[in-house]
Simulated assay, not measured.
Amino acid sequence: MPELIDPTPDLRTSFLAAVAEFRADRDYPTPWFVNDVDPPALTDATAFTAYVTRLLGEQDEAAGRAEWFVPMTTLWWVEGDQMLGRLAIRHRLTPALEKVGGHIGYDVRPSARRQGHATAMLAAALPIARSLGIAEALLTVDATNVASRRVIETNGGRFIDTVGEKCRYRVTTT
């Protein structure tokens, strides 16, 4: 049964395969996290371990390297040795993230889509968000992304409004 876990160097092979799938997918834009992978981590095991360490360190407020940085918990959706998706929970929001971004973002690798993983990932993330002090999580989604809107609504998401091309939802974390 899939579960959310902290990123680990042990899943390097599967993570790199997922990155390749995301890059090859012509139906959806490449997720931001794929472009955020440190380039040496794509070819060197030691650099990949450093990348995982960076991700784990981003949970700490002091880790902020840029003015816009907010602490976030990155988790991988895993079954056995297969990384099926990734999810990030931002611990707080900036004014910009209130409009576009929100508290929780998730991506399911193309070969694992349409199997209920996004819905299960979000459900598993809500108690974690609650433990971080987020009573109601803000989620944003492209207005045209009907599947993701359904995932949010299935998890109790209440539509708030549309800002630009993004629909905004509130989801209670209890």
Rank of each mutant, 00 (worst) to 15 (best):
E3D: 13
D6L: 13
P7N: 09
P9T: 10
D10P: 09
D10L: 15
S14C: 09
S14R: 04
F15S: 01
A17K: 04
A18N: 06
A18I: 11
V19Q: 12
E21K: 11
D25K: 06
P29V: 14
P29W: 06
T30Y: 10
P31F: 03
W32S: 06
W32P: 07
W32L: 03
V34R: 11
N35F: 05
D36L: 08
V37A: 00
V37M: 10
P39G: 07
P39R: 12
P39M: 07
P40R: 05
D44N: 10
T46D: 15
A47K: 00
F48C: 04
Y51I: 02
L56G: 07
G57Q: 13
Q59L: 02
G64Y: 05
G64K: 15
V70F: 00
P71L: 05
T73E: 06
T73P: 00
T74R: 02
L75W: 05
V78D: 00
V78C: 12
E79Y: 02
G80C: 00
L84N: 00
G85M: 08
A88M: 10
A88I: 03
R90S: 04
H91R: 15
H91W: 08
R92N: 02
R92D: 04
R92G: 02
L93T: 07
L93Y: 05
P95L: 11
P95V: 11
A96S: 11
L97H: 04
E98M: 07
K99M: 14
K99G: 05
V100G: 07
G101L: 04
G101K: 07
H103R: 06
G105D: 13
D107W: 13
P110S: 10
P110W: 14
S111E: 02
A112Q: 08
R113P: 07
Q115R: 07
H117D: 06
A118W: 07
A120G: 03
M121I: 05
L126T: 11
P127F: 11
P127D: 12
P127Q: 13
I128P: 02
S131L: 03
L132P: 04
A135H: 13
A135Y: 04
A137V: 08
A137Q: 08
V141T: 09
V141F: 01
T144A: 14
N145S: 05
V146A: 15
S148M: 04
S148Y: 06
V151Y: 02
I152H: 00
I152A: 07
E153K: 12
N155T: 12
G156L: 05
G157A: 09
R158G: 08
R158A: 14
I160Y: 11
D161M: 03
V163K: 03
G164F: 11
R168V: 03
